[in-house]
């Protein structure tokens, strides 16, 4: 019997354990889940990529972990989100504030709008240090300057009192990263940190993140829709579709043996220079709207292998011969194996 991946490691190696996370939004008088029953573990020092197209719930998963889903429209339910022995789903507002920016930090997609335009970057980077570490203004500034140098802001000292609009997009994203790393978090949630940047700048930011991860030993959840980035940076990959994880595996496994039809289609739709293709491959059809999710496999409608059995409940299940590789598709798993991690339904 295939062991679930989360059981193959000891609890002390786990940086974050998300079990049964469901995030719903209030649409037209009803609550609809945008993230449905997402479970995964993040090991210490590991980079897990969350991959999927826009609106698949990957950003919402990260925001849910940090408790940043707007409470008037969104609702987060989870069996547990375990971080350093604490269940974040049961943490008070105050406890969550202590975790945010200290234990777990986040870098957002849009460096142009994610920095406060009326505050200096020096202030914005040192702020978390003053708050979480209780440093004086001077101590925090000195430390903030170190971090700005660490993220390779050129002549950081002279730019310390500059405002965000005086920086380019790539430099702003470096500032964002410096802000997130100020308190040396255990986990960094990077939500498409390179998507809004030019290609050459993207490569620089990725390299920076890779270096920082190596130097600090932090774990990282890297959210992206770009599989090329995944191959470069991630240890493991979770592919999300319509609010669910449909496949999770080590990065080499996933690329070598994509087992969910959606993953397969995603890999096929990457443009390649070594093959002569007249047209880019696109997945037919569209993601079902949040208000009309099918009860069985959510990808079935667009799947080339669809059969009647797809209308039944699909569970994220380990492959027989690769216990750390789990797929939500009965064709690969036989459909009768135990579920991965926490109970799936």
């Amino acid at each position: 019997m295939a062991a679930a991946p989360s059981q193959s490691v000891t609890q002390s190696d786990v940086a974050l354990d998300v079990r049964g996370l469901t995030t719903s939004f209030y649409v037209g008088g009803h609550w609809y889940p945008a993230v449905r029953d997402v479970s995964f573990t993040l090991q210490k020092h590991e980079t897990l990529a969350l991959v999927g197209e826009s609106g698949c719930g990957k950003s919402m998963t990260a925001l849910s972990i940090l408790g940043l889903v707007p409470p008037d429209t969104g609702r987060v339910e989870a069996e547990a989100i375990l971080f350093e022995g604490r269940d974040l789903t049961r943490a008070s507002d105050r406890e969550m504030r202590e975790v945010r920016g200290d234990g777990i930090s986040m870098v957002f997609q849009e460096p142009m709008t994610s920095l406060n335009p009326v505050l200096t970057i020096g202030f914005q980077v040192s702020e978390a240090l003053r708050h979480h570490r209780g440093l004086s203004r001077r101590e925090a500034s000195a430390r903030a300057l170190d971090i700005l140098e660490q993220v390779k802001i050129p002549s950081a000292a002279s730019r310390f009192n500059d405002y965000p609009h005086q920086f380019s997009g790539g430099m702003r994203q470096r500032v964002m990263i410096a802000m997130a790393l100020a308190c040396q978090p255990k986990i960094l949630l990077a939500d498409e940190p390179t998507t809004a940047l030019d290609v050459t700048i993207q490569a620089q930011i990725l390299e920076l993140l890779r270096d920082l991860r190596r130097d600090t030993g932090m774990a990282m959840i890297f959210i992206t829709h770009n599989l090329g980035v995944v191959a470069e940076l991630a240890d493991r990959v979770a592919v999300m579709y319509a609010g669910q994880i449909v496949e999770i595996a080590e990065v080499e496994h996933l690329f070598a043996r994509p087992s969910h039809p959606y993953t397969e289609a995603l890999l096929r739709s990457i443009p390649r220079s070594d093959r002569d293709t007249a047209e880019l491959y696109t997945i037919p059809g569209q993601v079902p709207p949040i208000t009309r999710m099918p009860s069985g496999c959510r990808f079935a409608e667009r799947c080339t292998y669809r059969q009647d059995r797809c209308a039944g409940d699909q569970r994220l299940t380990s492959l027989r011969d690769a216990p750390t590789h789990a797929v939500r598709c009965w064709r690969r798993t036989g459909g009768d194996l135990p579920t991965v991690g926490a109970a799936d339904d």
Binding site: L68, L115, N116, E127, A128, H131
Partner: peptide, 16 residues
């Protein structure tokens, strides 16, 4: 605005 979410993600107190 996005930068308010950033400030929240830093764990700043409400009043700041």
């Amino acid at each position: 605005e996005d930068y308010i979410r950033t400030a929240q993600a830093k764990g700043l107190p409400h009043r700041s």
